[in-house]
Design a protein around this nucleic acid. Structure first.
Ligand code: ZN
Ligand code: ZN
Ligand code: ZN
Ligand code: ZN
Lengths: 157, 157
DNA sequence: GTCATTATGTTATAATATTGCATTTGGCAA
DNA sequence: TTGCCAAATGCAATATTATAACATAATGAC
């Protein structure tokens, strides 16, 4: 994805979420809108406490963790957000409303994540796991590496 | 892998670790041996605080977290242990001394983990990520699902 | 033995996340 | 409208996971 496309995705994400909420009768409350906006503006996925801090600034008073964790849970349950378990951060879903076969590509240098959909990957994994008698759940892989620009920078250095 | 083979692996793991330590001149101290034995006897991967509790029982006094975290770090750095980031637990490496291409298959029901080596999987992932301009680090995947026996039990239920 | 290095002990604290319960809000039926 | 229920939020306490900082002890090289 180009940098332009990434920016477009970032800008559109709150609107996409709002559209799905309207369609499905989900309450997009003021609190949820504020958290949506915080997540929407971040270049890289955010941790819960980073969100708590920003929200507290906006509200002008200290917000307690459960407030934010519950909001994040709401977004994750409804497919708007991915929790990245290997880093304890939350990333916008870049395919709101789509089926999810694929992976999150996580850059170790800049912290950004990119989401790819790939049914062939899903199939490959299922077959690989099946050889060991294992039945995989549907899931987003977390793959660690370097994004295009950080890899280029590393080569240049 | 059969249940018998799994049991063999479990029994042999401390000995394999010891052999590698001797070969590489790594100190297998009394503390490390005790932690090795705790990990060697567990059916499923253990969290740091589970290890702290068991070790404290064995030693007859409360062991502090850094003691255990440092021991786990030693095992992980030397390729004897995998930290499972999605669950905050530590699993015996089932291929001590081998190259690592592959995945940890994690059972959501019984908590056990199984390690597979698969160079083709590694290749597939690299190519998939490369299409997005991403350069993957070598890494063990974490794949969530049901192990053979738990999947069978679930079908039977 | 001296010294440097590695390993362990200990205290405190950081970072991440959840429980439980009180209060408020929003939707809806009588 | 009013009363009610369910969903959402506020809030305090606490649980869980992990690290920092510094002191002491053990080990190995010379
Ligand atoms: Zn997604
Ligand atoms: Zn990057
Ligand atoms: Zn391994
Ligand atoms: Zn199982």
């Amino acid at each position: 994805m180009s940098a332009t496309a990434a920016k477009r995705g970032q800008k559109n994400w709150p609107k996409q979420v709002e559209a799905v909420c309207v369609r499905q009768g989900l309450q997009l409350t003021p609190l949820r809108r504020r958290v949506l906006s915080i997540l929407g503006e971040s270049a890289a996925p955010l941790g819960a406490y980073a969100i708590i801090d920003r929200l507290s600034k906006i509200e002008g008073k200290q917000i307690a963790p459960p407030t934010v964790y519950r909001t994040l849970e709401f977004f994750a349950e409804n497919g708007f957000l991915h929790k990245i378990e290997s880093r304890n951060v939350f990333a916008r879903c870049e395919h709101v409303g789509h089926a999810h076969y694929g992976a999150l590509l996580l850059c170790e240098t800049c912290g950004r994540s990119e989401e790819i959909e790939d049914e062939a990957l899903d199939e490959f994994l299922k077959r690989t796991a099946a050889r060991a008698g294992f039945a995989l759940q549907p899931q987003m892989l977390e793959l660690q590496g370097l994004c295009k620009s950080c890899a280029a920078a590393a080569r240049g250095a």
